[in-house]
C-alpha cells in the first residue's frame, strides 16, 4: 500500500500516466461521439433522442465511480493512514460532483422528449440527486477540515465518504426494488448481457472508456497541482525561517 506513498514516487508514475490517459481518452471519446451522433441508426422507439444514451450513461458511471474512489480513499486513510488519500479525495470530489450534475442535466434533457417531463421524483432520479448533494457536503466538509489545519487531517471527510457509499447500491438497485419511471438497467456486467442491440451499443463502449480515461487524467492533473502547491508552500516557509 505504501509503495506509492512517497510523493516523489507517486509523481514518477503520475507524470507519464497523465499523458497516457489524456490522449487515448480524447481519441476514444471523439470516436464514440462521432459514432453515436452520425453513424448509428436511431432507436426504433425513441428515434434520435436515444443518442443521449452515449453521454448520459458515462456521466452516471463517473458520478458513482467517483464516490467509490472517495470511499476507497477514505478507507485507506482511516486504516492505513495513507498520506495520499486526503489528496486523492480532494482531487476527485469536485470532478465527481460535476459529472453527477451532468448526469442529472442530460437525463432531464432526455426525459423531456421521451417521458414527457423534465423531472419526476422517482427512486432513480431522487437517489442520484442525493448523490450530488453528498458530493457538495463532502467538498464543504473536506475544505473546512483542511482550514482547521493539522490533527486528524480529513478524518471526518473520510468517514463521511465511507458512510455515503451506502447510496451507491441504492442508486443501482432503485429500478429493481421500486417501480420507477426510469427504465431498468440495459447492461448486466455480471451476466454479460445487454438489451442494447450491438448496432447501437459500440459507441457507448467508446464513450464510457473515453470519459473514464479523461476523468483519470483530470484527477491526476489536480493531484499533481495540489502536490506542487504544497511543495511550494513548504519551500517558501523554510526559506522564510532561514532568512529570519
Amino acid at each position: 500500500m505504501h509503495r506509492f506513498a512517497n510523493p516523489a514516487r507517486f509523481l514518477k508514475l503520475a507524470r507519464p500516466l497523465t499523458g497516457w490517459t489524456l490522449w487515448p481518452g480524447l481519441l476514444l471519446l471523439g470516436a464514440g461521439v462521432i459514432g453515436g451522433l452520425f453513424v448509428t441508426p436511431p432507436d426504433y422507439l425513441q428515434g434520435d433522442s436515444a443518442r443521449i444514451l452515449y453521454i448520459h450513461v458515462p456521466t452516471a458511471w463517473l458520478g458513482m465511480a467517483g464516490w467509490s474512489g472517495l470511499a476507497i480513499a477514505g478507507i485507506s486513510q482511516l486504516v492505513w493512514r495513507h498520506p495520499l488519500a486526503t489528496l486523492a479525495g480532494r482531487a476527485i470530489a469536485p470532478v465527481g460532483a460535476l459529472y453527477t450534475a451532468l448526469c442529472l442535466a442530460t437525463g432531464s434533457i432526455w426525459g423531456r422528449p421521451t417521458w414527457g417531463t423534465w423531472w419526476e421524483w422517482d427512486g432513480r432520479l431522487t437517489s442520484m440527486l442525493i448523490l450530488f448533494f453528498l458530493y457538495l457536503a463532502y467538498v464543504a466538509l473536506a475544505s473546512a477540515e483542511r482550514e482547521r489545519g493539522a490533527g486528524g487531517e480529513g478524518k471526518m471527510a473520510a468517514i463521511f465518504a465511507i458512510a455515503g457509499a451506502i447510496n451507491l447500491p441504492i442508486i443501482h438497485y432503485s429500478v429493481v426494488w421500486w417501480n420507477t419511471l426510469h427504465q431498468g438497467q440495459s447492461i448486466d456486467l455480471v451476466r454479460g448481457e445487454s438489451t442494447i442491440d450491438p448496432a447501437l451499443l459500440w459507441p457507448l463502449l467508446l464513450t464510457v472508456l473515453g470519459f473514464t480515461l479523461l476523468f483519470c487524467a483530470i484527477v491526476l492533473m489536480r493531484m499533481r497541482a495540489d502536490l506542487a502547491r504544497t511543495r511550494l508552500e513548504m519551500r517558501l516557509k523554510r526559506q522564510a525561517t532561514e532568512a529570519a
Binding site: T59, V95, P113
Partner: peptide, 17 residues
C-alpha cells in the same frame, strides 16, 4: 435536445480539462 446534452457535457469536460 441531443445537441444540448452533448454540448453541455463535452463543453464542461473540455473546460475542466
Amino acid at each position: 435536445f441531443v445537441i444540448a446534452a452533448y454540448g453541455l457535457t463535452l463543453g464542461a469536460t473540455a473546460l475542466l480539462l
